[in-house]
């Protein structure tokens, strides 16, 4: 039986690692839930942002937060441009899956052409910093990520609930035609939301650059688990996405600490299936 320290540490690591799942799930959940577009290129955009953070940091010695300040607006515009294509070709849910998959593949090739297929690692002194709390260690970077993800998820949740635009978006997500008949300009809002989704990908990307290993094929490494997180967290629910991310992260970590690390990849889908079978009211 593992010790309490080991379990506690695994829980901390897992919840914090789950923050990354949640952050990646955020933009995906918004576009899937509110625009009915499944944006697979979300992962590729996040990695593009990660590579840009890496490039700015290693070649030009730009601090990651300044890099993010530069990359996020650019990604916002890319998100809008991407939606322009969706709008122009009247892309539906299924077609969006195929089209954004192609986007992602193209981005993967482009990243490989410029940065090669080799592993890249953005070494910063933050990457191994941690705070000691009793017998536990809390990694600083992951903590920062979770705080950023928390602020974004909470802010987006409030925005969707409290503002006119947010409520209109939710109304349009439920029934776009009826919402339009009540004066909701769904198209304009969709552009805004697409931009936001891409901007969130950029923020996730900055943290990916600091925390993870960069390789073009890594774009696909997060796909399965983040999809599970989006579904468990309920489509279009930002707080749900973050909490589901942390739940999955913690479950994976506990499984690795108590049983076999090799079980970790099975955990996210087991949790997903268990929750779908349980079918709780909040899902």
């Amino acid at each position: 039986m593992p010790s309490a320290t080991l379990l506690g540490q695994a829980l901390i690591s897992g919840v914090l690692a789950g923050g990354m799942y949640g952050l990646l799930a955020l933009g995906l959940s918004l576009s899937w839930g509110l625009l009915r577009l499944v944006n697979l290129s979300h992962f590729a955009l996040a990695f593009l942002a990660a590579y840009l953070t890496y490039e700015l940091g290693t070649t030009y010695h730009v601090a990651p937060w300044w890099a993010a300040a530069m990359i996020v607006p650019v990604m916002f515009l890319i998100g809008i441009a991407q939606h322009w294509l969706f709008d122009k070709f009247k892309v539906n849910e299924l077609a969006s899956l195929l089209i954004t998959f192609s986007f992602a593949v193209i981005l993967e090739v482009a990243i490989q052409l410029y940065w090669t297929a080799d592993y890249r690692r953005f070494e910063t002194h933050y990457s191994t910093m941690s705070i000691k709390a009793g017998p536990f260690y809390i990694p600083v970077l992951e903590l920062a990520l979770c705080m950023v993800a928390g602020v974004l998820a909470w802010g987006t949740w409030l925005w969707l609930r409290k503002t006119y635009v947010g409520k209109a978006l939710r109304a349009a997500a439920e029934d776009a035609d009826i919402a339009a008949a009540y004066g909701v300009d769904h198209k304009k809002l969709a552009y805004l939301l697409s931009g936001m989704g891409a901007a969130y990908a950029a923020i996730a990307g900055t943290f990916i650059a600091l925390i993870a290993t960069l390789a073009p094929t890594q774009i696909w490494a997060w796909l399965g688990v983040v999809f599970a997180v989006v579904i468990i967290g309920r489509l279009g629910n930002p707080l749900g996405a973050l909490l589901a991310g942390m739940l999955i992260g913690a479950s994976e970590s506990i499984a690795m600490a108590v049983f076999e690390p090799a079980w970790a990849p099975v955990v996210s889908f087991s949790v997903l299936i268990a929750i779908l079978l349980w079918d709780p009211e909040w899902l």
Partner: peptide, 20 residues
């Protein structure tokens, strides 16, 4: 003796076991 899946994303829990 621990085995992890190729492409394992988070080494936090494994590290905690190695440390222990």
């Amino acid at each position: 003796y621990l085995e992890y899946e190729a492409g394992n994303r988070d080494f936090g829990a494994i590290a905690a076991r190695v440390k222990e």
